[in-house]
Design a protein around this nucleic acid. Sequence first.
DNA 1: TCCCAGGGCATCA
DNA 2: TGATGCCATGGG
Length: 308
Amino acid sequence: MTYTEIPVQGTFSEKECLWFLNRGFDDCIYRVFTDKIRRAFKFEDELTLVDIIPMPDKICLAWLTGIPSKKCETYVSDFLGGWFDLDIDLGAFYRLLNANKKLAYMTESYKGLRFIGIPDIFEALGWAIIGQQINLKFAYLLKRRLVEQYGDFIIYQGEKYFLFPSPEVIARAEVSDLRALQLSGKKAEYLLSASNFIKDGNLSREILLDQPDLASRLKYLTDLRGIGPWTANYVLMKSLKERSCVPYADAGLRNALVKHQIICYKNKPAAINEFFSSFEGWESYLAFYLWRSLAPMTDEQIVSLIAK
DNA sequence: TCCCAGGGCATCA
DNA sequence: TGATGCCATGGG
């Protein structure tokens, strides 16, 4: 077996990252085991399957399907840097959290949780379109159908490991094909439109990074049909690691803010904006930690922690 | 049965 | 420019 080690700087919790990836949603593009994640990658024409073993000070990669080319190894290592946000020091963010009585518990409860991204721009965009306005369980089911229909895969020990489909492949589908997977007509149109836009070279990481600022990147995305403020913010925070994104209108985010008694009513964008303004430069992380807070503890536990 | 879900668009006043 | 209705379907 061939191994690669990626060093990790700063506070990093392998348990928190594994927990986030294994929230019970049955994501079809990786498998989570007790201490590792198994995922397929494709670099140019090279398909490979990797066990990713996160540890407190490094991430160890075990190449299950043979020795990778140097370029493929670099690609996967870079991908993991984006997936687990390895180049970040959480100190300043934790200082902001600690200054807030209601959220200070997060610096201990979620200590070392890195922002789990979606490095591939088309995967982030496609997933955001699929997930708009439907419950997450159904969204993951739709994603699985799409991936199993159109994605490449690698077989290892009798099991298939899929990759998210390329925009070129999706662009060849018809609305009726996607409707057959139970996407709504509009989502099918939006997904095809995004696929064609990327296929034709009108959208890429580089193009977005070339925009002068966050507002310009948001506008570039929201000019696309089917991409509103929520989707644009979501894609930029997940894919480009933009630090100052607030996914307004996100139901989970609103619920988390209500749960922490930060806003009184479920739908008050101005109140959300005001609260996030005190986390300048860390808005994306704040949203991510608030999402993290939704599942693991009961309301009583949170109230109890806040009261301490 | 009803409301909500990690929204966005078209329409209308 | 802001409010409202609609899309589309599963989950609770």
